[in-house]
């Protein structure tokens, strides 16, 4: 159920990427896809009723390890989010370049203007 909703989020992003004409809309759809994939990775590591993988003073390691969520997907997603921001900045720069070259954000117009 939760996985299906998450997959639908990714599918909405993919739909936007392949169907929309506006470059900024495509960038936004890619961002939505990225959110869905990050959420999916975190969901895979979730333990029902689990607590965050941060130790408190006095907790025994074995007890802590038995009740914490998986820290590995979290570490991967943490880097993935920041990389996503850098990639988004680069995509926006490409959008501005395209606008300067063609005067429009519409990719079908760009195809016509090429030459």
């Amino acid at each position: 159920m939760i996985y299906a909703l998450c997959l639908m989020l990714i599918a909405v992003g993919l739909y936007g990427v392949v169907v929309k004409k506006n470059v900024v809309k495509i960038v936004i759809s890619l961002a939505i896809m990225e959110y869905g994939i990050n959420l999916l990775l975190i969901l895979v590591g979730y333990r029902a009723g689990g607590h965050a993988p941060i130790m408190e003073p006095g907790a025994s390691p074995a007890e802590f390890a038995a009740g914490a969520v998986d820290p590995l997907p979290q570490a991967l997603v943490l880097t993935s989010i920041v990389i996503g921001l850098g990639v988004l900045a680069m995509m926006v720069a490409i959008c501005i370049r395209l606008y300067e070259r063609y005067g429009t954000f519409d990719i079908t117009e760009m195809r016509r203007l090429r030459g």
Binding site: P53, I54, M55, P61, F64, P71, L72, A75
Partner: peptide, 18 residues
């Protein structure tokens, strides 16, 4: 999770991993 605190000294296991 089990040995992160002893081997790195960081209480936040996510930071210890990354």
């Amino acid at each position: 999770l089990a040995e992160g605190l002893d081997r790195t000294g960081a209480a936040n296991i996510v930071t210890a991993v990354i």
